[in-house]
């Protein structure tokens, strides 16, 4: 599990750094003294857990959480107890540590984060995510007892095939025992759209549309008559 620390106080960063280094399977990737630099980092990197200080000048921990579209799990750290209730209003916040942080308390928080992660990884038979978040950037599929990670933006289209679905990505095609309805729950609404009872497509991968068919990569996909008006609405037509 990977983590970062965001805290403007160096003493706190040093303590968290040391305690994180004592935990097996927890890799501290970076420690930031301000939230802005952390946002830039998170735009380019996937992280499992953030230790986030609430009190920071200019840009508080709560401000930071609100800027994240798909936040990882967050453990808040602060010298105050009075923010605990507000903290848990955020779905991504899994724990709240009052400074000075004790080793045992931190370990429990990390354990909690790990349990969330493992639930997410093995929660489904074909797709991994079991929570209500439908806009995940990544999807895990189960093939021969191996969980394979797919970045959803690399998916060109998904095709129903009996009791299976074929997930066609830019690099590779995967055949998974699942249904279009199940995978729809795991995909972000944008840019995916079900154009036919047997096809979900990534709208950003369309090459052209002719009559009632769409060309995506090397695949020709039919457009259902009932889906066509909504498809047209979602396209940026000149």
């Amino acid at each position: 599990m990977t983590c970062i620390i965001i805290d403007d106080e160096e003493t706190s960063r040093v303590i968290l750094d040391q305690l994180c280094s004592e935990i097996e399977d927890l890799d501290l990737i970076e420690a930031f003294d301000n939230a802005i630099e952390a946002i830039k980092f998170l735009n380019k990197n996937d992280i499992d857990l953030i230790f986030l200080d609430i009190h920071m000048p200019g840009f508080s921990g709560f401000d930071f959480i609100q800027t994240l579209k798909n936040p990882p799990k967050i453990v808040l750290t602060t010298s105050d107890k009075e923010f605990a209730l507000e903290a848990f209003e955020y779905e991504s916040v899994i724990d709240y540590l009052v400074k000075p942080i004790s080793r045992d308390r931190l370990f429990k928080a990390v354990q909690k984060a790990k349990s969330f992660q493992s639930t997410k990884a093995v929660g489904g038979t074909s797709e991994s995510s079991d929570n209500s978040t439908t806009s995940s950037k990544t999807l895990y599929i189960n093939i021969d007892r191996t969980l394979i990670k797919i970045e959803t933006d690399t998916i060109n289209l998904i095709e129903a095939d009996g009791d299976y679905i074929n997930i066609k990505t830019q690099e590779k095609d995967y055949r998974v025992h699942s249904t279009l309805r199940k995978i729809t729950e795991k995909l972000p609404d944008d840019p995916f759209f079900q154009v036919h009872r047997s096809y979900i497509i990534n709208l950003s991968r369309i090459i052209d549309i002719q009559d009632n068919t769409i060309l995506i990569a090397k695949s020709v996909v039919p457009i259902s008559r009932t889906k066509r008006p909504e498809l047209m609405r979602r396209l940026n037509l000149l």
Binding site: D8, S79, K99, P100
Partner: peptide
């Protein structure tokens, strides 16, 4: 607030 943490440390 930052000094408060050091007081508790």
């Amino acid at each position: 607030h930052k000094i408060k943490h050091k007081v508790s440390l």
